[in-house]
């Protein structure tokens, strides 16, 4: 007998919901939907972001990292309690 499948909340694209047409890398607040606590880019299969917005978010995150708006890595040396608090 196969174990009963666990039920999760249905995933949906947060960017489609907010009707975002273009993801600006300077707006770090909207980038966090596609980021993990350690500022890794979350895969689409876990967040439910649609392909169109995922591609935009990827590019925006990479640009934001280059300009030091969000960190490249958060490792054990500089881990913080509330990672998204510093985003303005």
């Amino acid at each position: 007998m196969a174990p009963e499948r666990r039920k999760y909340a249905r995933k949906y694209c947060k960017y489609c919901e907010a009707k975002i047409e273009f993801i600006d890398y300077k707006d770090t607040k909207i980038l966090k939907h596609a980021l993990s606590e350690r500022y890794k880019i979350m895969p689409r299969r876990l967040t439910g972001t649609c392909k169109r917005h995922q591609e935009m978010a990827e590019l925006a995150i990479k640009r934001a990292r280059h300009t030091a708006l969000i960190p490249y890595v958060v490792d054990t040396r500089n881990v913080v309690a509330h990672p998204f608090d510093q985003l303005q």
């Binding site: 300077k26 990292r65 030091a68 708006l69 969000i70 960190p71 490249y72 510093q86 303005q88």
Partner: peptide
């Protein structure tokens, strides 16, 4: 003008 802000990592 985005003003002076904290960098995500040291430059």
């Amino acid at each position: 003008n985005m003003g002076t802000r904290k960098l995500a990592y040291k430059i």
